[in-house]
Amino acid sequence: MLKVAIFGATSAIAQAVARRFAGEGARLFLVARDAARLEVVAADLRARGAASVETATADLAETGGHAALVEHARLALDGLDAALIAHGTLGDQKAGEADAGAMLRELGVNFLSPASLLTHLGNLMEAQRHGSLAVIGSVAGDRGRASNYVYGSAKGGLRVFTQGLRHRLGRAGVAVTLVQPGFVDTPMTAAIPKGGPLWATPDRVAADIHRAMKTGPAILYTPWFWRYVMLIIRLLPDFVFKRLKL
């Protein structure tokens, strides 16, 4: 029976991952900032077969509370086999350009907050000498673009951070995985017109994440074709890239 902690558990992608663990009878510890929504999600996972579901409410941008949260998770589950960090915000890029304070808040939620959780969780798993850590980045972190480089740089920071953490924790038998989704149809992207082959459902992406949390690859592009799309985008020379409206 796996013991799994999920941060940002009311996210559409996180819920879809949690359902898959629940179906296997896992024990779950869920963290989100909205208590009412969190309870709705927890009840769903209980009915879907989770052996137990415990919750904690927290604004994850407040990194000061992270140590206690991770300790709470460890006690509630009596150890920890896997953790997923899913929260994030797709802030208004224009606001971030005009106002450095808004830009820093965006970096705070999308980079500092997961990096802080990864540190606490990583230390815990290193001490117990096993575990699997996954954090949701984004293909937006693979190359800075005019339309979303604030969000993108936070996600790109996670790329280097998880690379190094994986290098460090590998010796203790702990896997660290960066999840790189493409376009996923969730509330985060509600304002963007959808349709076409590039859009995936949360469940499609969750199937990949669920598997990766057991096998522990360094980077998971999901759906798989984004690995090749982003390879091309990264390799485009600057003089070509500059002309693209992305």
């Binding site: 769903d44 209980r46 009915a47």
Partner: peptide, 16 residues
Amino acid sequence: RGLDRWIAFDQEAGLI
């Protein structure tokens, strides 16, 4: 389709 959750499942009574 975003409201696709279980609220309760009483397995004794078969009430969902």
